[in-house]
Design a binder for these strands. Structure first.
Lengths: 339, 339
DNA sequence: CTGAAAGCGCTAACAG
DNA sequence: CTGTTAGCGCTTTCAG
């Protein structure tokens, strides 16, 4: 096995080649430094010729910040997070920040990687719909890495957050279904512990209760396609079959549509209404035509990056951003009857 | 604005607290170093108490390698790359490597971010189905960062690569369609420049020609859903409508199914056969039941990480890995007739 | 405007 | 086994 001794060109090499001091080279590569125009060009030419590029690791060592943002993702089977990740990578990039991606299954407990990540002097840590355990929060505080929760919050104020308005969203959906004259409501829940699910569920059931709707049905879906598929089967096989199902996200709603249509031969949108949440791109496909409450991913991402930049300078700041969404009605739900 | 002066705990602080030298602290945190058991515990206690964590940036500065792998992704609308990205993040993590994600639209030309990335002393650069321009290849060579192309190759041997066997895959699909007694074949192509499309197209048309099938139709899809949708419309609206369409990937095949079923009322799998490539999870959904040639993502990812580890020690090595796939027949294509 | 010198936080010989 | 001593490649005073 060859020993890896790739010898890099350093500022010293360039300095010698250009006949200047090493600090002059440093200045030539520092935006607002004072270098004589001709010295600068001489240096840049030598650098170009030698193929020199400043070592950002060394720079970060001095500045104390890395310009790197850690991003923890759980399950990418939800297209909403894929969309978010894509937007986040672009937006961070434009802000001159790097995105260090790491797998953060479940609630982040016992993850070895995340603890490793924290050693990189991250400018911030973003958790995409991943829970922040109190242990992890403490680790981040110790490591002085500010945390931004995306699409989730915590009870304690352990971290800043960016979420959609789940209360308005779920109530809007409940109102939509009631207007469509549905009598037997069901809800397929997301992950039990998640703030997102807790809020959507409370708002949905809360609104129904206010309107005098009794005994809506509930099934656990855990935001997972397989679990939601099983939940949909139970719901549809029961003797008291619901005529409307609100799923806590689009992935589960699409799973429910698949079951209703292909296993029970139901005409979705006429015999049964199914509604999701997030309005992922797939929801608009004619194969699903899913009514959904849209979360503005780009706006949420922009807010996230804004928060990161604030927290870089002021790590102790706390901010909870709530953005508004909108209901997108499509064929999977029966609209209000004309009278 | 508060000045960000987060003062980190250094090995020096721990040394003083534990009454040892700074290098002793370093040893305590180095796996195979010689430290007396009780010294070690004393150090670890002090470290724990102070919340010390070694600065990996400083460590990388010395070792010359960062344990960071850059990963460039183009469009994440293709679920195959989402799946790959998820697997890659896990697999790299297990190998003790970090994943620096960056957006690499198009062919990587003129991208400012990638050039920035190269300053990080990356252990390797992985391009997920993103082209490697000769300019970029040169930049990477200069920066001494080995490149691994995933699901794509280049003509010149500018980088190592991991791809599926497109030749076998496309021929297998052609044979499958011929066995199903289809007479009028069509192909919806992926990105024109991509090696993946070139190989699949050549093998598909090549096999058909060998079997005496004349004048198969071709439409450009560019691996994009909108383009493929338009292509499917043209194909199905023409007077000489095909009875079989092979799409260069699953995303486009699903777009074609949507058009055939919802715009032309065709019974997919009986009146027309549609076949894709990749076998993404969605292909198995009853809504599509898409026949597809499966690429083993986990295996490809494993090979990619293996290559990275080889290249870390021997940057000049070149290897092209080709992995085998398998045809998964589902309802979207008519099977061979019984005779 | 420029060079010399002092580190950023850590690892790695080198003597004890 | 442990402390001392050099740096890794760069930024940043501080004098010229």
């Amino acid at each position: 096995m060859t020993t890896n001794d790739r010898s890099f060109i350093t500022a010293h090499d360039v300095a010698r080649a250009a006949g200047v001091s090493q600090s002059a080279v440093s200045r030539a590569f520092t935006p607002g430094a004072s270098v004589a125009p001709d010295t600068r060009t001489r240096i840049m030419e030598a650098a170009e010729r030698l193929g020199y590029r400043p070592n950002l690791l060394a720079r970060s060592l001095i500045s104390g910040r890395s310009s790197i943002v850690g991003v923890g993702v759980g399950d990418l089977s939800n297209p909403f997070f894929v969309e978010t990740l894509q937007l986040l990578s672009r937006t961070l990039d434009q802000a001159g920040l790097r995105l260090l991606l790491f797998p953060a299954e479940g609630s982040g407990r016992g993850e070895p990687s995340i603890n490793e990540i924290l050693h990189y002097r991250l400018d911030a840590l973003v958790l995409l719909s991943v829970g922040l355990s109190s242990g992890l929060a403490e680790e981040c505080r110790k490591a002085q890495v500010p945390v931004v929760l995306y699409n989730r919050t915590t009870q304690d104020h352990a971290a800043s957050s960016v979420i959609g308005d789940n209360d308005v969203g779920a109530r809007t959906i409940a109102a939509h279904l009631l207007a469509g004259d549905h009598r037997r409501m069901a809800f397929i829940a997301g992950a039990e512990g998640s703030s997102t699910n807790v809020q959507r569920e409370a708002a949905f059931f809360g609104y129904l209760a206010e309107q005098g709707v009794t005994a809506p049905i509930r099934a656990a879906g855990d935001y997972r396609i397989e679990i939601a598929t099983a939940a949909a089967r139970r719901l549809l096989a029961g003797r008291d079959r619901p005529d409307a199902i609100f799923c806590a996200n689009d992935s589960m709603a699409i799973a429910a549509i698949n079951v209703a249509r292909h296993e029970y031969g139901l005409d979705v949108g006429r015999e049964i209404s199914i509604v999701g949440y997030d309005d992922v791109p797939m929801a608009a496909w004619p194969a699903f035509s899913l009514t959904s409450y849209a979360q503005p991913a780009q706006h949420m991402v922009d807010q996230t990056v804004r928060l990161i930049q604030i927290l870089r300078d002021d790590p102790d700041r706390h901010e909870d951003v709530v953005v508004e969404g909108s209901l997108v009605v499509r064929g999977s739900s029966r609209a209000a009857r004309m009278r």
